[in-house]
């Protein structure tokens, strides 16, 4: 009973939390808390096998799948309150009311007291007792469930299967394409320069500087360069400033070497202008 009075408030608070938290991932987490608490209740009720299976199957596998989907879909924003199915709310309230009545009746029937018959059920070991019941009395139901689950798994695979239309691009294909591009257009053969490596910053939106001082446009990820269109990116201004500094320093030393720096500088600004 101690376990119950400790776990029950935790479970109720977590269950209410599922209803009231904003983020879907938080709700999933709280559901995991409820499931683990339930497993602990099983353990306190001398059902250790059920305790382990509850955590392995529900918390470890099913809940994890939920989390995967939530994270990949990225349901960060609050949910839309527009009804997609007509009369959904009315139906929900009705069904919820029926469920509440059912729950009330069941709880009313149940007596509150110590559990009875646990010792007899666990005689000869918990796992052994469970196996005895499962594989003798309920073996047909067990097999039918197994068949159902396998059918469902196969169905999921068939539904998700897709014929491949184009041959899969292998590493050799990509290498060949690269060399071809190099031969035909003179594209750089190696990997792209990392952003910011030779520049004054190491931020991803700052292009690397090539040995001649011009920025390597390719080094900025396309996502960022696409997003940054319309306004001159600050990094380019920095590049310009460096080029300007270099220029002024060279002006002081030897005015004749201007041309090189200027040429690369205009190449750098070509995109912005």
């Amino acid at each position: 009973m101690i376990a119950f009075w400790v776990l029950a408030p935790v479970m109720v608070i977590a269950a209410l939390g599922i209803l009231f938290v904003r983020k879907a991932v938080h709700a999933a987490l709280l559901l995991a808390v409820v499931m683990i608490s339930l497993a602990m209740l099983y353990a306190a009720l001398e059902a250790p096998f059920l305790f382990a299976v509850q955590i392995i199957v529900y918390t470890g596998a099913i809940m994890m799948l939920f989390l995967f989907v939530l994270m990949l879909v990225g349901v960060d924003a609050s949910d839309s309150v527009v009804e997609t199915i007509r009369g959904q709310r009315v139906l929900a309230v009705m069904v919820g009311g029926i469920f509440a009545v059912l729950l009330g009746v069941i709880v009313g029937q149940a007596g509150i007291g110590t559990a009875v018959g646990l010792g007899a059920a666990n005689e000869g070991g918990n796992i052994e007792g469970l196996a005895e019941v499962l594989f003798s009395q309920y073996v047909l139901a067990f097999e039918a469930t197994a068949a159902l689950l396998i059918t469902a798994a196969l169905g999921a695979m068939v539904l998700a299967h897709r014929e491949r239309l184009v041959p899969r691009e292998t590493q050799a294909d990509r290498a060949a394409a690269r060399v071809r591009a190099y031969g035909e257009h003179g594209d750089h053969l190696g990997p792209l320069a990392a952003p910011g490596v030779y520049a004054r910053h190491n931020a991803v939106d700052t292009p690397a500087l090539l040995p001649d001082g011009s920025p390597a446009e390719q080094s900025v990820p396309t996502v960022i360069s696409n997003r940054g269109t319309g306004r001159p990116s600050p990094s380019y201004r920095d590049v310009d400033r460096v080029v300007g500094q270099l220029q002024s320093r060279r002006d002081d030393q030897d005015p004749a070497t201007d041309t090189v720096v200027e040429g690369s500088g205009s190449a750098a600004r070509g995109e912005d202008a």
């Binding site: 995991a32 683990i36 382990a52 955590i55 994890m64 989390l67 918990n126």
Partner: peptide
């Protein structure tokens, strides 16, 4: 120790993945 000790290890490890 418990009758399901090894399963217990697997169960707790699956919580760690969270």
């Amino acid at each position: 120790d418990m009758p399901v000790a090894v399963l217990f290890v697997m169960a707790i490890a699956s919580i760690g993945i969270y």
